[in-house]
Nucleic acid binder design. Structure first.
Lengths: 229, 229
DNA sequence: AGAAATTTGTTCGTATGTATA
DNA sequence: TTATACATACGAACAAATTTC
């Protein structure tokens, strides 16, 4: 009996869902006041609030004291946090995370190559240079992560971006050991850096083959038996 | 000012997070009573409850009236529902969805090939046969979806599975038109069915190349400029 | 089996801080 | 500046379900 659909606040959620679906509520719109909602849905204000908090935490709306509850237009940030939290509580299996990350990056790459803008290209090159010149492992980790992040963002797909961000948020504690594991498998650290270099310059120069090669080299050293064409 | 980190109920969430991280709270464990928590965290019971509802809706815990609040062990189902809801509210851009789905399926495929069990292989073949023999489009859609679903589940990666399920839940309304669009681009319906056949038998027979060919053929007809090796 | 105690579910009232006209 | 509307937070009360004795 883990499931009980009897929760009163679900009426509020269903209400919002329905209003969105019907087109009566659009991003930025203000919801009726909590008291109105309580009256309309025949539940207490507290129950209304429970539902509102839920939606707020999902990033679907935001509350402004003294003003009202508004449907949010962009809740990517909150969506990311939430995903990250769910993943965290669920318990992360390193293999699962690596597989998922690989799934996202691999698919984001071709999209990124065709959609990246000049600003991002510039940043990407800077990261590749910085990574190459980084004096210590901490710096390298920073450039490493920025590099991957820029590429995924350049794909312009919010699902991919949100999922990736959620993962990297989780991986913060693990990234050091993961990087170390990769390096151990490679003949030297430079091999990893050259993989990154291919990846970055491939994307920046619109050379998908080169970029994909770099990415494959990068991920090959994580212990997954991956698809090799 | 969409962000206000001052919410009182966050204390409860932080508490749970910390207790989970410290190992003091494990799946199935009962939390302290709401009144205890209110006292301990120095917030009102209402605020405690707001936090609890949040976590419950995330599937992280469940409440039983008269008994207590328990940390949940598996909340994959809720995670899926939640993802689906977030995606729904966010508004689906067909291209984004297609790209994301492709990302998941492509990466799930090699994993599925190496992890699928006999039971699933059998089902998969049945779906392929059923699809071939289906008398009308409704039936074909059913077999179509089941086929893809079995493959993704066979990859044994909860992130991939949850994301995929969330997407297909969304796509229910769009799947007909999408299928129609694909068929229109193919020379005939049989071409789509043969793609599915390659996919299903490839997985069932452990032939990754065949399966991947089927999948690529399948997705090529969706209007994305995808990575072609 | 039954009664009492415990715990969550739901609602109301009130005080307070904030935004808006 | 003032007045009003609104959300925030708390405490208390009772109902309903469960557990304990």
């Amino acid at each position: 009996m883990t499931d009980q659909g009897n929760r009163t606040y679900k009426r509020l959620i269903d209400y919002v869902k329905q209003e969105v679906r019907a087109g009566n509520l659009q991003p930025g719109d203000r919801l009726p006041t909590e008291r109105d909602l309580a009256l309309r849905l025949e539940i207490s204000r507290n129950s209304v609030r429970e539902g509102l908090r839920l939606l707020e935490n999902m990033g679907i709306l935001y509350s402004r004291q003294g003003s009202g509850n508004y449907l949010s237009s962009n809740f990517n940030q909150t969506m990311t946090e939430m995903l990250s939290f769910m993943y965290f509580i669920k318990g992360m299996n390193d293999d699962e995370v690596a597989e998922f990350r690989w799934a996202i990056e691999r698919s984001a790459l071709p999209l990124a190559v065709s959609r990246i803008n000049e600003e991002e290209k510039k940043e990407l090159k800077e990261m590749a240079i910085g990574l190459d010149a980084a004096p210590d492992e901490d710096k390298r980790i920073y450039y490493d992560r920025q590099l991957h992040k820029i590429i995924v963002h350049a794909c312009r797909n919010d699902f991919l971006i949100a999922s990736y961000e959620a993962l990297t948020g989780l991986m913060d504690t693990h990234i050091k050991s993961m990087r170390k594991a990769i390096i151990d498998r490679m003949e030297s650290r430079h091999e990893l850096e050259s993989a990154h270099s291919d990846l970055a310059y491939g994307v920046a120069e619109g050379d998908l083959k080169k970029a994909m090669n770099g990415l494959e080299k990068h991920f090959t050293y994580i212990n997954i038996d991956l698809h090799k064409d």
